[in-house]
Write a protein that binds this DNA or RNA. Structure first.
Lengths: 210, 210
DNA sequence: TATTCCATGTAATTCGTTACATGATTCT
DNA sequence: AGAATCATGTAACGAATTACATGGAATA
């Protein structure tokens, strides 16, 4: 059986490629704060993987100069070999990421749940998407100020912008969805068909050249 | 330990709530064709779950009138109890769906991978998003024609539109990402900061009322 | 006749989360 | 003194995929 990717490895290597040194706890923090909107890792994944990476020589523990008490805290740094492995992974095309959106499931099966229920799911998405879009919008200026000398700045901005665009798309979708449901309630499938035609034209935009 | 959701159950119940009767194979087909862009199930999940749902009385096997040979094919239909359970699940707010996008990981760690690599990842997304947006755009007219009498039509259109908006957002993002990288190559972080300000303003749109 | 598709199901293995155990440090 | 947070790690369990085994029906 061909073994599955084990992406956690590369997340850890990636973080250690930018962070110089980090503990398991640090890595968890980094993931939650910086890439939490498109990736997550739990301690149960991180700690065992750190041990394996160490055993494989891709990372190495760092001598900890203990400030006072013998506080147990293991920091690691990436090895040259680790960098090579990371780079070769980065250069391979990304594997397709399966997406599972439970809220769309609940909307897709909307007839069995009832229209009011469907509406409240959509309203929930709209609210959440609005909050997220605002949050992403607020982060960018901070990042531009605080990380003006950070060589990783562009890449952080790239993923941040992706988060914003995704939130914005959901917000737009939620508004269109509400319009379609109103049309459905008033005019059934024929009403929906009419409302659909009023939505921004699809083909035109996609064909547009950059 | 609080048991985890087991969404496969409700996917099966949902499909049987609209489909009247279906086999494990049919369910797999349905998932792949109708909701594959935001949900997926494998046989290894479906078949055991069908057995459990049967044992719990939420679905029931249907007598199969065999056309000729004794072909083994088990079709199931949802029971009244199954409908009750489905409905109560649908009415609960959707659990947050963890998202994992490997391609963003590769972009986020772009410095370790090199600019050309990052560019090719973005180009890949742009191509894929374009194809998807076009595909979604092509499905809608078909659906409006073929399913004019289908009581589930609106809900299918809703999720279809979500897929389109997502693809479109990625396409827009990819173009912006390319612009940011060009600015970075020419002017480093200061170039990026300048290019960032030229992107469509963030706050304005989100504050807009429907 | 060979290949593809229909069809069901199990086994092996990995992925990933949650809960638990444990203890130090910092803040109120 | 007590609460919150920092910090590491393991155990248990469920989720999910992939591969395998098996065989009929249709089609080229």
């Amino acid at each position: 059986m061909t073994p599955r990717p084990n992406t956690t490895r590369f997340v850890i290597l990636g973080i250690l490629s930018t962070e110089e040194s980090a503990s398991g706890y640090d890595i968890r923090q980094f993931v939650a704060l910086s890439i939490g909107h498109f990736w997550q890792e739990s301690f149960g994944q991180i700690y065992p993987e750190l041990a394996r990476l160490d055993a494989d020589g891709l990372i190495a523990p760092v001598r900890e100069r203990r400030t006072a008490g013998n506080r147990s805290r293991k920091r690691y740094q990436i090895t040259p070999h680790g960098r090579v492995i990371l780079k070769s992974w980065l250069q391979q095309p990304a594997a397709p990421s399966p997406v599972r959106l439970e809220y769309l499931l609940k909307i897709f099966f909307g007839r069995a749940g009832g229209l009011p229920t469907t509406r409240s799911h959509i309203a929930g998405i709209e609210k959440q998407a609005t909050e997220r879009a605002r949050a992403f919008a607020a982060i960018a200026p901070e990042l531009l100020q605080d990380s003006a000398a950070d060589p990783d700045l562009v890449f952080a901005l790239l993923t941040l912008r992706h988060g914003y665009r995704t939130a914005e798309a959901r917000l737009q979708w939620a508004r269109e969805a509400e319009a379609l449901l109103r049309a459905f309630e008033r005019g059934g499938n024929r009403g929906v068909a009419a409302a659909w035609k009023k939505l921004p034209a699809l083909e035109a935009y996609v064909d547009e050249s950059p």
